[in-house]
Simulated scan of single mutants.
Amino acid sequence: MLFAPFVVCVLALALDRMLGEPRRLHPVVGFGRLAAVVEKTLNVTPGTPRRSLWAGCLAVLVLTGPVLCLAVWATVVLDGLLLLLAQAGALWLAMSLRGLAEHGRAVAEPLHEGDLAGAREQVSRIVSRQASALDEQGVAAAATESMLENGADAVFASLFWFVVAGIPGVVMHRMVNTLDAMWGYRNPRFLYFGRAAARLDDVMGWVPARLTAFTYTVLGNRKLAWWCWRNQAPQWDSPNAGPVMAAGAGALNVRLGGPSPYPGGMKQRPILGGGQDASPASVESAIKLVSHGIWLWLGILLAATVLVFLVVWVKWC
């Protein structure tokens, strides 16, 4: 059915809004636990570059191969309504718009009420920074950055890969993104072992990240967002997070980046955006930017589907 991708996206977003993330037996959580076991089993020589690199490649293949085969099998075997429901379920489990908003507001609300300790506790659940060393502006900046970056990873990239490759695409991206989040660290343990997952995540996230940056630019302060994207994004160490966060910071007219405390010490990061300091309001604005972006994507998908329908209809007539 020509309108199936649009219908699936709407159903998945409706499930996300009504149910949110499953509290128990979430497949992404289960996959993460399995990945931790595989990593402990295979990453036995972290100080040996070649062996660690090959072990990391094997780990990615062992974890993603069977699940990807199952996703392809489901796409081939299922048909009609069953396939549509399976697609909606897979997309719902892969993305997390409601969860994103809940995590962001869990930081913004105590911060707005002057409860810095509570805000630090909440932000420590969504970022890897040393939350105890963050001041109010630092907590707000960390939460705002998380909303912008995870909007790309957990929402827009999932929609993109579903439209491009159906269940196999969205499932593969979610697995690779999860492995990168767990293993993509430049420390002695994961420097080589996590490289395969990190590079694969860079490849799968390249187009969605730039579409997300474009979305933020269109919906926010266009001139500043475009300038930040062009001039500040190349300074960021991540090829995909750079455009997303730079464009998002510019779109919101908020200053992000800069020095940040991590468990391993202070990390010097480039300044992104400009104008106002991060605040509870900037966290809420980032959430709204992602939400409005979803409506834009759905509108474009519907318009493209209608256009294809009209072209086919004219040819048949």
Rank of each mutant, 00 (worst) to 15 (best):
Q268S: 09
W206K: 00
T64Q: 04
F162M: 06
L85T: 11
A198C: 10
D16E: 09
A14G: 04
V306I: 15
E136R: 05
S260I: 06
H26W: 07
A281F: 02
N177D: 02
L34A: 15
G248M: 08
S285N: 11
N150V: 11
S52Y: 00
T212Y: 06
G99L: 12
V218I: 14
S279P: 12
D237H: 14
V170F: 01
A233E: 02
D180L: 11
A35Y: 02
G118W: 08
L134F: 01
V283N: 01
W183C: 09
A197H: 08
P243T: 09
V77M: 10
L85V: 15
T144G: 13
H112F: 02
F156W: 09
E284S: 11
L134A: 06
F3L: 13
V207D: 04
V176L: 08
V67P: 04
G80I: 14
R186G: 12
L159W: 08
V37F: 13
L302Q: 03
G99R: 05
N231A: 12
L83T: 06
R33V: 13
T305K: 07
A157R: 06
F6D: 06
A209L: 04
A12N: 06
A90R: 03
Y216C: 14
L2K: 01
T217D: 07
G56A: 12
R189G: 08
V139I: 10
R33E: 15
V283T: 07
F31S: 07
L82S: 11
I126A: 09
A119K: 05
A142I: 04
V164W: 12
N253T: 14
S96H: 05
A241T: 04
P261Y: 10
L13K: 01
L272K: 07
L70H: 00
Q137E: 14
N231Q: 14
N221L: 01
G99P: 08
I126G: 03
A304L: 15
S260K: 06
V72G: 00
S96L: 07
M1S: 13
Q232D: 13
A157W: 08
G138V: 14
P46I: 13
Q87E: 11
W295E: 03
R98I: 11
H112T: 13
D153V: 13
R33L: 15
D237K: 10
T212K: 03
V37P: 01
F160E: 02
S282P: 00
A154K: 07
G248T: 09
A71T: 10
L78Q: 03
G118V: 12
Q130R: 07
W54S: 05
L78C: 06
Q276M: 13
C228I: 13
L116C: 02
P261S: 10
A152C: 15
F156A: 06
V308A: 14
